[in-house]
Design a protein around this nucleic acid. Structure first.
Lengths: 143, 143
DNA sequence: CGCTAATTGTTGCTAATGACAACATTCTCG
DNA sequence: CGAGAATGTTGTCATTAGCAACAATTAGCG
């Protein structure tokens, strides 16, 4: 099969399509870059949020990231098993857990961030540095 | 739980995060908009590509859209079962199938496109029409 | 020509993700 | 106090992605 170029037809008019294509590229690169540490994008986002907002509840973190309660609960169990995250009792609300990075988790996150930055640099190169900046500015308002 | 705003921390520096958030919004809205016809985004993209490029093989379509062979094969079986897509023998290569929209498929696609356009209009309104245009221009080069 | 390597479509399997429902515990608020 | 909401947990299901293996066919090279 010769690599014949097909026309996208109406697809050309759908932002979602191009968004999806680039997003897939980004995730695939991220997953490959972080594979040595076995960290997935969603896990990374949770670690960063907990680092920047220690002591918050699962519900708060989940709402911020748009991760569903059930899914986050299971993810946190996995992160707890790896001793990267600790869940303490919340004094003022016995239902909720306060989330913290463990010392071990902070150390791991430092390494993770390093790889993630390399990934981000690769992404910036892929889309072009100026486009990267522009896209970031455009998109940041809908996170 | 008061809806306390958390800081995103380092997440603020990752294009992939914002890309993902907007992409999720788009897909969720698309899926909801197309739910009456039970069409998913990937199916829609295949229908559009086949419409715009009738008679091509699964491999060609798959490569264009970045859909894996196995996945596309199963998706096409479903579309064939709904009598939207027909697969004919390819004269010059007995291994491959030529893909076509059926008359019924073309009729269904017309309705689908109408709903998809409404979705796109909603998306344009969500991000702002000028941003929609800009994002399209930025992103189109990486499809 | 003949044979190896690649291509095409198919199926099976695994893992990750998202969504939803049910549940026990605990809190809020009238 | 009591009804209803919130929180975390578990279970289930459907979709998606990726990989591996396979039969049939084709391409390409010696």
């Amino acid at each position: 099969m010769r690599t014949e170029k097909l026309t996208l037809g109406q697809l050309n008019r759908h932002l979602g399509y191009f968004l999806r294509r680039l997003q897939l590229w980004v995730f695939q690169d991220f997953i490959r870059a972080l594979a040595p540490l076995k960290v997935r994008p969603a896990q990374y986002s949770v670690l960063l949020i907990v680092e920047a907002n220690p002591g918050r509840s699962q519900a708060t973190v989940g709402k911020t990231l748009g991760i569903e309660r059930a899914r986050l609960a299971r993810m946190l169990h996995a992160l707890e098993r790896r001793k990267w995250i600790a869940r303490h009792a919340n004094g003022s609300d016995a239902r909720s857990h306060s989330l913290y990075l463990t010392a071990q988790g902070a150390k791991a996150l430092a390494k993770i961030k390093c790889l993630a930055e390399q990934h981000e640099a690769k992404l910036a190169e892929h889309v072009g540095p100026s486009r990267h900046k522009q896209l970031m500015a455009w998109l940041r308002e809908y996170g």
